[in-house]
Computed example of a mutant assay.
Amino acid sequence: MNRLVLGLAATLAASSAVAQTTVQSCDREVTFEAPPKAAVSNDVNLTEMMLALGLRDRMAGYTGISGWKTLDEEMRAGVAELPELSEKYPSKEVLIGADADFYFAGWNYGMKVGGEVTPETLAPFGIKVYELTESCIHIGDKPKASMQDMYNDLLNLGRIFGVEDTAYDLVAAYKLELDRITSSIGAGGKPRRVFVYDSGEDKPFTAGRYAMPTALIEAAGGVNVLDDFDKSWARVDWETVVDKNPEVVVIVNYGSVTAEQKRGFMKNNPALAGIDAVKNDRFVTLDYVEATPGPRNIRAVKKLAEAFRGD
């Protein structure tokens, strides 16, 4: 009798391990017969999501980091045992050569619409793709950016890799911490008017209503002055920024131009001298990995909330 019970338990465990899982990825439903064993993630924030869920041993490597960004000590430790397969966006051959069975990327986060690497071009090689929720706006409609975008990705990755409990606990902890931060903001008063300065001098590259900083700014008690800009990340002209007159500028720190250089450009540009944020020297810096969807978003909200209060 004991052997029968043990045998049944083993059969159920094996069945559970190979149970199908279907998740929504942008406008597609993707079904996994079993958890991936050789995953590749693109970009620093997506890679950090994988690491936060304890999936390093399921990864064949990562791509798209060192070509644009520098890893901090925390991330260097996380990926120490993993190869960077491509400094920028990977080619199809790179993913096939790594024997990848899963690619975690997004539109403009490792894939381009109509490009060489897409869910459709990778499917014949047995490489399934899960798309970053924030990026879905590039191929269809989606709601304005929210913290739920990041939570959704973690929960879906949990389902895909069979670590649902870990994902649920992680998201629950993030929500609890976010509630603690937002409860300290206090009610009353107008939200701070905020402009996100990513890069560019002739025309600034910034975050519109579908980019993650819009959600971070709102959670911290502010409003993105370009939340009516029907884009994710895109360029505007400086005249628009002047007209919006932000009280605070959020600088996204990455690449060869430092946050201090970006701040200096705005401070020393006569055309921008009348902006409240420039006049009052109200700048706050977010690292790229804080400003894009990922585990450091909660830290970013805390940093923004403190800056909006003037701490």
Rank of each mutant, 00 (worst) to 15 (best):
V257I: 14
A277P: 01
L216Q: 14
D202M: 06
R209Q: 11
N224H: 00
T182D: 15
G255N: 03
F161C: 00
W238I: 00
K190F: 03
G186K: 05
L154D: 08
W233A: 12
V223N: 07
S232C: 05
A273G: 10
V249R: 07
E201G: 02
F195Y: 02
E239S: 08
G274N: 15
L178W: 03
N224C: 00
R282C: 04
K231L: 04
R159D: 15
I160M: 13
F229E: 13
D227W: 10
Y254K: 05
F229D: 14
V223F: 04
I160Y: 11
R159M: 13
F205T: 01
G255C: 04
P191F: 05
Y197V: 02
K244E: 15
D165H: 00
E239K: 07
W238T: 04
P213I: 05
N269C: 10
R193K: 10
E164C: 08
A207P: 06
K203H: 08
R193S: 09
A277S: 05
F229C: 14
A172Q: 15
V252F: 04
E260K: 09
S199M: 00
E177A: 03
D169Y: 01
R263F: 06
E218C: 02
V194G: 02
G188H: 03
D230G: 10
R192A: 13
N156V: 10
T285R: 01
M212H: 09
K175S: 03
I217R: 00
M212K: 01
L178M: 04
V171A: 09
L154N: 05
G186A: 11
A172V: 04
P246V: 04
P191Y: 06
G221L: 00
R209S: 12
T166V: 11
R180T: 13
